[in-house]
Amino acid sequence: MAQAELKERFEGALGGLAEAVEAEGSLVRVRVALPNLRAALLALKTSPDTACDFPANLTAFDTGQEMTLLYRLASIPNRWQALVSCPLDREDPKAPSVADLWPGFNWFEREVYDMFGVAFEGHPDLRRILLPDDWEGFPFRKDYVSKPSGSPLKGPQPTDLGEQA
C-alpha cells in the first residue's frame, strides 16, 4: 500500500485527535497530546480503516527534559502498525489507562509505573511489578539517584558465614 494512502487512512480514522501523522513503510508514527490519548488509541483500535487491535508494545522514555509514552499497535491482517507517542508532564506524570481496552497492556502499564512512576488512571491494579514492593524511587527516570544497596536480608544478619563471607 502506498505510504500516502496509509497516512490518509490513519488521519481519517484519527480525525483531529493526532498532532502529527507520518507514514514510513508499513509503520505509521502518530503523535498525540495527553488529553486525546485514550480517544486516539480507541479510534485506532475500533476504526475499520486502521483496525490496530493488537497491543504490540508499550513503553516510555525519559530524556531528562521530557517524558514520553510509546505505544505500538499492530493490525495483523493488514500488516501495518502504528507507533503512538504521547508526551507527559514530567513533574506529575499521569496518563489514562487502556488496560480495559487491551488486557495485554495491564502488565506493561504496571511496568511503566514501576520504572517511571507514571500513574495510569483507571488501572485496576497499579502496583510495582518487577522491583520489590518497598523500593524507593523510579529507576528509569533520569533524575534517579542510585543508592548503595544494603544487605539483601532484612532482620537479623546471618552469623554463620564462616570464613567464606
Binding site: P139, L153, P158, L161, Q164
Partner: peptide, 15 residues
C-alpha cells in the same frame, strides 16, 4: 546492578 546481590555468599555460606 542495584537489584542484584553480589554473590550468594552474602546470604548463605558457600562451599
Amino acid at each position: 546492578s542495584e537489584t542484584i546481590v553480589k554473590g550468594v555468599g552474602e546470604i548463605v555460606p558457600v562451599d
